[in-house]
Amino acid sequence: MDKFEHSAREGVQGFGTLSEAQLRNSDPDFDAWLGQQLQFSEPYLDDDGFCDQVMERLPAPTARSERRVTRTQYAAVAMASTIVAWQFPFGEVLAEAARQSISLYSLVGIGLLSSLAAMFGGIVAARR
């Protein structure tokens, strides 16, 4: 504290007589040093439930924005399913299935069930 008190005694007498030139005379080194010291002396304040308290007091999101989210999610899942269906080599799989003597009906059934499961999973994942 000695350093500060010594400077303070000298400084207090000088503050009233600081010229405009002195005031405008910015020292970039001092600015950088002061900035560092200010940062260094600042503790990080732990959240300690602060964020949760804020979130509890927020008004609920509007129904309109929730509907928009749901529509967006369904659109994303539908688009993803379309791309998968477009890229899927149905012809080759059907030909292979015929060769392996798998019933066409069971193959379609498995395909439908897989698609439904994938879509359901996609929607659940997106909603989370």
């Binding site: 400084g11 910015s26 040093w33």
Partner: peptide, 18 residues
């Protein structure tokens, strides 16, 4: 500017040490 000038004077000793 005024605050900077005051701090510069008050913290001079620390700066000189650095």
């Amino acid at each position: 500017n005024r605050a900077r000038a005051k701090l510069q004077t008050l913290l001079q000793a620390w700066r000189e040490e650095v």
